[in-house]
Write a protein that binds this DNA or RNA. Structure first.
Length: 214
DNA sequence: GACCAGGCACATC
DNA sequence: GATGTGCATGGT
């Protein structure tokens, strides 16, 4: 199969099989950012417990997270795992957010995508996937999010070696799919969905909508 | 009890 | 640049 067409074919098959994913599962863009940090190497069900705790304590705002102590925050997000380090990371983001943008998402959103990405990556605890998740799902910028499922899926379909760089995976999507926030949103969500169903660390290819491709 | 989950930073070679 | 390790809870 021609790789130029395969990513589009994958998308069409996944979209037909699963339908709309309605991502990101959050009530506000700010909540997306917090969720993006909490879900690092962590199952979403655990993140949900932490988000639920935050909501119960009415902490899902920049001001509240700025003012709460690190120790209290870490206990509240404990169910998400890595809770001490994640509390630091949330604090680091919120500090950056106030120092540079007064805690105002609209101000952040006005900036150029390259500038935002560079600034996010300079925050300790925010790497490429988290930065791109924030850009796409919270700030609605057309950038593709590469995650473990993306690497498994494309490597298993012989499109790219699993050990290829984040940028190489991302470039495939950017080159082969016209940048579009809604399409990138849906595609990444579909990859996570099919990944959870079929493309785990030990894959189950039987029944996968992409089972018979290439 | 082992394995896995929507990463990242840091040490070492 | 590549590889190894710590970080941690909760579901299967």
């Amino acid at each position: 199969m021609n790789n130029t067409n395969s990513l589009i074919k994958f998308y069409n098959l996944l979209s037909a099989f699963y339908g709309p994913q309605n991502w990101w599962p959050a009530e506000t863009p700010f909540e997306v950012i917090i969720g993006a940090i909490l879900t690092q190497n962590t199952s979403w069900t655990n993140v949900e417990k932490a988000i639920k705790n935050l909501r119960k304590e009415n902490l899902l705002s920049p001001e509240k997270l700025r003012d709460i102590s690190y120790l209290q925050l870490s206990e509240i997000i404990r169910p998400s795992g890595y809770y001490r380090i994640k509390a630091q990371r949330i604090k680091a983001f919120v500090n950056f957010f106030y120092e540079n943008y007064k805690g105002n998402l609209e101000l952040l959103k006005e900036q150029k995508i390259e500038k935002i990405r560079f600034q996010l990556l300079s925050i300790k605890g925010i790497g490429k996937e988290t930065a791109d998740s924030i850009l796409l799902y919270a700030l609605e910028k057309p950038i593709f999010v590469v995650d473990i499922y993306t690497k498994r899926l494309l490597s298993r379909h012989q499109i790219l070696n699993f050990k290829a760089s984040y940028e190489e995976f991302q470039a495939l999507f950017h080159d082969q799919i016209t940048p579009d926030v809604q399409i990138y949103n849906e595609y990444h969500a579909l990859i996570v969905k099919v990944g959870k169903d079929f493309c785990k660390a030990t894959p189950i290819c039987k029944g996968c909508p992409l089972e018979n491709i290439s």
